[in-house]
Computed example of a mutant assay.
Amino acid sequence: MRIQTLFLVGCCAFAACEKDVTVDLPQGEAQMVIEGTIATGKYPEVILTRSLSYFSHITVDQLKAAFVHGAVITISDGANTMQLKEFSKDTTNKVKWYYYAADTTLAGAFKGINGSSYTLRVAVADTVYQAVTTIPATGMVIDSLWSTGTSQGDNLAKLMARIADPPQSGNYVRYKTAKNGGVFRPGINSTIDDQIVNGTHFNIMLEAGHDRTQEINYDTYGYFNKGDSVRIEFSNIDKATFDFWRSLDFAYASNGNVFASPIQVRGNIQGALGYWGGYETTYRSIRIRK
């Protein structure tokens, strides 16, 4: 009888403690986000936005308002400087996409060159952001590509690559894949470095690109289907660009893992989120064997 009494008292106590709790989550101050690239043989491109709250319900109007207009953006190679012009293009979700790129109608517009360094300067109102990136002169090269079967199903295949790394240490790569004429996408792990394999030829599995708006099926992740036509975008990058993408990959992979340590995405633009990166890019193609 005493046990029953204690049990009832305990239940009443817990019931009495129940109440609705409303947590006022902090919104945080919007920060400048800069995404800038310059690649071999291509004009630079920069996208400016303001960050959105992690906990906010993102609407079309918020996306439209996130773009930053009227910035003065210049790119310098040390000898020449050009100012970028703001452009826009329509997207399928009815949101105009704004970006800054070279005005090719003016003299002095230049493209990226291997081995050159480029300084980005972004002036928004009274604030200036700067960063420097280098397009590597040389780097890792894909020697050969082939496919192998997997234990996950008769129709699945791994894409393998043999990569040659030069004798000089400090080489970094980011790669994406596209299949059957689709868009290029990175995998969960999209970077390679030569910390362990410097100056060697080594074999590595190239993961199939993943749409990061979709959940990951770990039973089939990273594999291609037999018969797929695959394109590889293979870019040598500098250390700062590598650190940005590697930390972003880690942050994505650990998202939702309550046991993971907090990860800070490492950009190279002081005072802003994002990065300014140079790319020495080559492309390779293969059809996965049936």
Rank of each mutant, 00 (worst) to 15 (best):
54 Y>W: 11
267 G>Q: 11
15 A>Q: 11
145 L>S: 03
239 K>E: 12
95 V>N: 01
134 T>E: 14
219 D>S: 13
145 L>E: 03
147 S>C: 12
278 G>M: 07
5 T>Q: 14
65 A>Y: 11
269 I>F: 05
110 F>W: 09
2 R>W: 12
247 S>F: 09
51 S>M: 07
144 S>G: 06
214 Q>K: 13
80 N>G: 01
183 V>D: 15
131 A>M: 06
99 Y>H: 02
142 I>M: 07
183 V>I: 10
61 D>T: 13
118 Y>P: 02
246 R>C: 02
260 A>P: 08
133 T>N: 08
190 S>L: 05
287 R>F: 05
11 C>M: 15
160 M>D: 08
277 G>V: 04
10 G>Y: 12
126 D>P: 03
105 T>P: 01
208 A>E: 12
51 S>W: 13
87 F>Y: 06
164 A>F: 09
283 Y>V: 02
102 A>Y: 07
110 F>V: 00
46 V>R: 00
256 G>A: 10
289 R>P: 03
158 K>V: 02
148 T>D: 15
8 L>Y: 09
3 I>P: 01
144 S>K: 15
90 D>Y: 08
15 A>S: 14
290 K>H: 05
230 V>Q: 04
12 C>P: 06
119 T>W: 04
98 Y>G: 01
67 F>E: 07
237 I>R: 04
148 T>L: 09
204 I>W: 11
167 P>R: 05
289 R>G: 11
250 F>R: 04
52 L>K: 01
280 E>D: 15
273 L>S: 04
21 V>Y: 10
24 D>Y: 09
172 Y>C: 00
12 C>T: 14
131 A>P: 05
179 K>N: 09
209 G>H: 10
264 Q>G: 09
195 Q>P: 01
112 G>R: 04
20 D>L: 10
196 I>V: 12
196 I>S: 10
20 D>S: 08
143 D>I: 07
219 D>V: 06
198 N>P: 04
142 I>S: 03
35 E>G: 01
248 L>N: 09
106 L>E: 13
164 A>T: 15
234 F>K: 04
154 D>G: 07
56 S>W: 09
95 V>Y: 03
287 R>P: 00
259 F>H: 07
257 N>Q: 13
252 Y>I: 09
216 I>H: 01
226 K>W: 09
81 T>Q: 04
237 I>F: 09
221 Y>N: 14
45 E>Y: 00
171 N>T: 08
21 V>M: 13
127 T>G: 03
